[in-house]
């Protein structure tokens, strides 16, 4: 069957947690005009699904935090809604060439490495196990703790006079913070981000 839509569109749709073969089939028959502008509810739903995947990729690129193990490994928590682990991991490996990037959670992990000309990827079990294995293979020194540097800087940017909890929740929905494993930060007034949930 000849598909009218770009391959990337179908690829992102396939990453959505609720994607089915029949949805992919239907998506591949959408005309370019319909893909551009549509009022058909089913096509709108398909476009929304792709946008949700793209939104999660964009947000996870920014929200995932990386912990260094020496200078050669960076690892971080990622538990996305959609199947975007490889995509986010690959993005970060391109950002940090010659550094092993490992993202994941307690069931699944993704590993990526870019040497400046080509990228390699892998998938494995729980992140903690993957990181332990990588530490052993690389014979690296201990992890480096920079979270306190970040928290100090983060709270230095906050203006109490401009406090806007609704706006903060809109920009940093809890589900994405949880997906990226962003920990609660404490300020010197002992208010925590949990107060805003």
């Amino acid at each position: 069957m000849i598909s009218h839509v770009p391959k990337k569109f179908l690829h992102y749709l396939s990453l959505h947690k609720d994607c089915t073969p029949s949805l992919l089939n239907r998506a591949s028959t959408i005309s370019p005009e319909e893909l551009d502008v549509t009022t058909d509810l089913k096509n709108i739903k398909i476009k929304k699904m792709v946008n949700n995947v793209l939104a999660e990729i964009h947000l996870m690129r920014g929200f995932v935090r990386l912990k260094p193990v020496g200078e050669i490994i960076l690892y971080g928590h990622l538990k996305p809604q959609h199947d975007i682990g490889h995509t986010v991991c690959y993005f970060l490996s391109r950002r940090f060439p010659n550094t092993i990037i490992a993202l994941g959670n307690n069931t699944r992990s993704w590993i990526s490495f870019y040497d400046g000309s080509k990228a390699l990827g892998s998938e494995s079990g729980p992140l903690s196990k993957t990181v332990d294995e990588l530490k052993e293979l690389m014979d690296t020194p201990e992890e480096v703790e920079v979270e306190n540097l970040w928290e100090t800087y983060y709270w230095s940017q906050y203006c109490e006079e401009r406090r806007n909890v609704r706006y903060h929740k809109k920009n940093m929905p809890k589900k994405y913070m949880d997906a990226a494993g962003i920990k609660v930060a404490r300020n010197n007034n002992r208010t925590t981000l949990d107060d805003f949930s």
């Binding site: 940017q157 906050y158 920009n171």
Partner: peptide, 16 residues
């Protein structure tokens, strides 16, 4: 890319 938002809703994208 925006990496965080403070409780006043503003983006913290850079080391400012």
């Amino acid at each position: 890319v925006c990496h965080a938002f403070t409780p006043d809703g503003r983006c913290v994208g850079m080391f400012k």
